[in-house]
Design a protein around this nucleic acid. Structure first.
Length: 423
DNA sequence: TCTGGGGTCCTAGGACCC
DNA sequence: TCTGGGGTCCTAGGACCC
């Protein structure tokens, strides 16, 4: 009775979220698009069955969607984030130690249970999450996180009951023998290609390679993965997430942008959003980076610029970050290009409390007033909706750089104005 | 016309130190 | 015949994840 990792993964998460509040979509093909209504990032079973591929550009499939009665949604992260929190909160009741791995995945660590209790717990998890949140999940169980991920994939296959335990060595080898290395958690396209060129094709092949060979080919991270395939735990549960090291706000534009003025508005809006996130996490940034790029899929002149700048002192104050960010933008901007995307990255993050003070930064009364201003801005934007109070620099008129979001569902659970109605 | 956004970790190589 | 040996820190770039 050793430790077991459970990987709980929500089925077709974004599509399932849309369905919770629109039961008429049950049994129908549903897809959710990325920001800017760009490409397909989630598909219901029915959509998968129609042959719709993950990551496919939506514009190439418009007529196909219409012809096949596919229900198409813009992504609604307010809804998915809130539903995710509900699922994770439910899961936290089942184990002392959990790791929220992504918006739709969670590892649980269970200690000292026999096989039958493990399986019973896994089934109970499925029932409870479905009942309390409406979201269907599958559970994979194994002695390492890497194998638990694989077990979860097996659990998702239609013929099972949504739960799969991977423990028996012969069973594991049989499964790994049927699996491409690229399907292993941590082995990406490049590594898979490289392994393949050395004659290592299946997960079982990798498991059976010599340690020093694996290390040479894939570095220590790859070796850890291989050890995990041998049921030797190397990747620990991250119960308390390490503090964030960087933070990004970037968007593709709704239309291509040429004028510096519009780019300034966009970057101004992104800095404000990034600073909000920073304050919410209780962090300060010591450096800011801005990047700008043309569409990399289109023919024609291309350009990508990026520059980073250290700040006079670490800060979470929108006004301190705003000036430097716009200066960088003017530096890297080259006229004559049609830009597609820009972003702001905050770097060298540290907790707001224990930082080195500088003579250059606002202090005393000025500092107190600025902190109060930021608190008021955040409060107003929380209560009245994001973007209610902004700097004028992000523009007052119509914003051509705003991302497209033409088919967003209501924020059923996070906006009073959009609550579902029951008749 | 139209192809997402937000992260982490590892390595190599250079600068610099004693 | 022969050119020390280690160490740290930083950065850029690559690879990976969802």
């Amino acid at each position: 009775m050793r430790d077991f990792y459970l990987m709980v993964d929500c089925n077709n998460f974004y599509a399932s979220c849309e369905r919770v509040f629109a039961p008429r979509l049950e049994g129908k093909p549903v897809v959710v698009l990325s920001n800017n209504d760009g490409c397909v990032i989630a598909r219901s079973q029915e959509a998968k069955a129609l042959g719709i591929v993950m990551g496919e550009p939506a514009y190439k499939r418009e007529t196909f969607f219409a012809r096949n009665g596919v229900h198409v949604f813009s992504s609604n992260y307010a809804l998915y984030g809130d539903m995710s929190a509900r699922v994770m909160q439910t899961l936290a009741g089942f184990a002392e130690e959990t790791e929220v791995y992504s918006i739709d995945e969670c590892f649980l660590l269970l200690r000292g249970l026999g096989t039958s209790s493990l399986l019973e717990t896994a089934r109970e998890i499925r029932r409870t999450v479905r009942k309390w949140t409406g979201i269907p999940v599958c559970v994979g169980l194994a002695r390492t996180k890497t194998l638990a991920k694989i077990a979860n994939r097996l659990a998702k296959k239609a013929d099972g009951d949504g739960v799969r335990l991977l423990e028996d060595e012969a069973d594991i080898d049989r499964i790994l023998g049927d699996m491409d290395t690229g399907d292993i958690w941590g082995i990406g396209r490049k590594s898979a290609l490289r392994l393949s060129s050395c004659g290592v094709h299946t997960a079982l092949d990798l498991k059976n390679q010599a340690d020093d060979w694996i290390r040479r080919q894939l570095t220590v991270t790859g070796l850890r993965t291989a050890l995990e395939l041998r049921q030797i735990p190397c990747i620990a549960l991250e119960d308390t997430p390490p503090p964030a090291r960087s933070l990004v706000c970037s968007r593709s534009f709704g239309t291509r942008i040429e004028s510096l003025e519009s780019l300034e508005e966009a970057v101004s809006a992104y800095v404000q959003r990034a600073a909000e996130k920073l304050r919410r996490k209780g962090l300060v940034a010591a450096a800011v980076q801005v990047f700008l790029e043309t569409n990399r899929f289109q023919p024609g002149p291309r350009y990508a610029g990026s520059r980073c700048r250290a700040l006079a002192a670490p800060t979470a104050d929108t006004l301190d970050l705003h000036g430097p960010a716009l200066e960088i933008l003017r530096d890297i901007h080259k006229p004559g290009y049609k830009y597609q995307k820009a972003g702001v990255i905050l770097l060298d993050l540290s907790p707001a409390g224990n930082r080195q003070l500088s003579f250059l930064e606002p202090h005393g009364e000025e500092k107190t007033r600025r902190d109060a201003l930021m608190r008021v801005m955040d409060r107003i934007n929380t209560v009245h909706g994001r973007g209610s109070l902004t700097l004028a620099a992000s523009g007052l008129g119509k914003k051509s750089w705003h991302m497209r979001q033409e088919r967003r569902s209501p924020c059923y659970t996070t906006s009073w104005a959009e609550l579902p109605l029951v008749r």
